[in-house]
Design a protein around this nucleic acid. Structure first.
Length: 419
RNA sequence: GGAGGAAUGGCCGAGUGGUCGAAGGCGCGUGACUCGAAAUCACGUAUACGGCUUGCCGUAUCAAGGGUUCGAAUCCCUUUUCCUCCUCCA
């Protein structure tokens, strides 16, 4: 969330910054509320001071005088209560408005409405040329009987899939491989809860605006749409020390997304599912190091694709294509031969202090004595496991339908061919 | 799910209606002593917001919210979290 004071002091700049971010906020109302709040506060302080003074004096008075004063003080007390009630009303409304304002994009982010203005940063690897028509992962998976879409639909509904046999082996191998790789590069492994409360969802920015994108339980809890939610909220309401930073976690979890509003997109295959596995990287840093840590995080996600020898490119997202809480975001897109294009496999965001404000994650600054500041939070997929499985199936397929196992996974899968 | 106990400053811990933003200790800071350090002594040590004569004044904050009262850390209600015991369970 943005700082109320900052928003009010820099209203024009904020509005300009949010131009492509679909922020429907009544800024005039915001300003009026702020004015009213200030008036109420001043009145309250003065009144309270008087009341307190009179109240002290009352003890020295005789009975009759005290009774007269008591009546007067009662009136003051009532007004104080009234002012206080209105003030908390205003505070609640201001806080609520802040929750609906997205993060302001970093100056480097292209100011544009959608993905057509995303900026390609770099490419790695060369798409393999096949001397046959490469099949899509769903064709390959169904032929080899390792992906069962039909029964997934029967048992659960559209966008649910059974992994069978070798696909399970590969999925688990990928999870293990990703966690091992990240752990060897300084990340601590985490397995988080899959169900979180409302505060956690609000802390990372999924709520209140995107409530209908998440699965909800009947006791007002939520299935996590990403491990980012529980892992970032690990340190919610905590005061960290500078020597702890940066904190780096790699987490495996299943992810659950209702995908409201994505009807018709990627209906075939395993690209877009209601439930999928993901290994997520999460960092807590100081403001000074967050940019460098963001670049490093992207590199850490790229490392997985490199070791698996999958061609990919890195995209800097435009303002309109970024997530609600992000300040700057890079997508990694992997090459899918069947689609003849790059498809998103990782999204690496810097949130600045936006999530830290919502979740109240602070640290004690080393220089300014005893002062606290909000940390910066970052995260990125490292990687989406299901999509990685797909990418391997398509990129490593051979003419006879067999699928080779990437060198980096041989120790995990213990076979040269998946099927 | 049932019964009981608890929640106070960076930490520990006192405090059952006014003189309490809160004793005492630890920690931290400054100074004295010392060649230097330790020990010792002295003083200081929360955060946020508002005002102006920028040093003071004021307000809020003792888990959160509400209530009683002229006045609440203190009394009452609700909620949350933690601990102990029982129940259940992988």
């Amino acid at each position: 969330m943005l700082d109320v004071k900052y928003v009010l002091a820099n209203l024009d700049a904020v509005i300009e910054g949010l131009r492509f971010r679909n922020a429907k906020v009544d800024f005039d109302h915001l300003r009026a509320l702020s004015e009213e709040r200030r008036e109420k506060c001043v009145r309250y302080d003065n009144l309270r001071f008087e009341q307190r003074k009179a109240s002290d004096e009352m003890r020295k008075l005789d009975k009759a005088q005290a009774e007269a004063l008591r009546a007067q003080l009662k009136g003051m007390s009532a007004e104080l209560k009234e002012i206080d009630a209105r003030r908390s009303e205003i505070d609640a409304e201001l806080a609520q408005m802040m929750l609906y304002i997205p993060n302001i994009p970093d100056p480097e982010v292209p100011q544009a409405a959608d993905e057509s203005d995303n900026k390609e940063i770099r490419r790695w690897g060369t798409p393999k040329s096949f001397d046959f028509e490469p099949k899509s992962h769903d064709e390959l998976g169904e032929a080899a009987k390792i992906l069962d879409f039909e029964r997934g639909t029967k048992v659960s509904g559209a966008r649910f899939t059974f992994l069978m046999g070798a696909a399970v082996k590969m999925e688990l191998a990928l999870i293990q491989f990703m966690l091992d790789t990240h752990a060897s590069r300084g990340y601590k492994m985490v397995m988080p809860p899959y169900i979180v409360n409302r505060d956690s969802m609000t802390g990372t920015g999924q709520l209140p605006k995107f409530e209908f994108d998440a699965y909800k339980t009947n006791d007002d809890m939520f299935l996590i749409p990403t491990a980012e939610v529980p892992v970032t909220n690990l340190h919610r309401d905590e005061l960290l020390t500078p020597d702890q930073l940066p904190i780096k976690y790699c987490a495996y979890s299943a992810c659950f997304r209702l995908e409201a509003g994505s009807y018709g997109k990627d209906t075939r295959g395993m690209i877009r599912q209601h439930q999928f596995d993901k290994v997520e990287l999460v960092k807590f840093t100081t403001p000074e190091t967050s940019e460098a840590e963001h670049q490093a995080l992207v590199n850490d996600a790229e490392e997985i694709l490199k070791r698996l020898e999958l061609p990919y490119r890195v995209m800097l997202l435009s303002a309109g294509d970024m997530g609600f809480s992000a300040r700057k975001c890079y997508d990694l897109e992997v090459w899918l031969p069947s689609q003849n294009m790059y498809r998103e496999i990782s999204s690496c965001s810097n949130f600045g202090d936006y999530q830290a404000r919502r979740a109240n994650i602070r640290y004690r600054t080393p220089d300014a004595k005893e002062k606290t500041a909000f940390v910066h939070t970052l995260n990125g997929s490292g990687l989406a496991v299901g999509r990685t499985l797909i990418a391997i199936m398509e990129n490593y397929q051979e003419a006879d339908g067999r699928i080779r196992v990437p060198e980096a996974l041989r120790d995990y899968v213990k076979a040269d061919y998946l099927v």
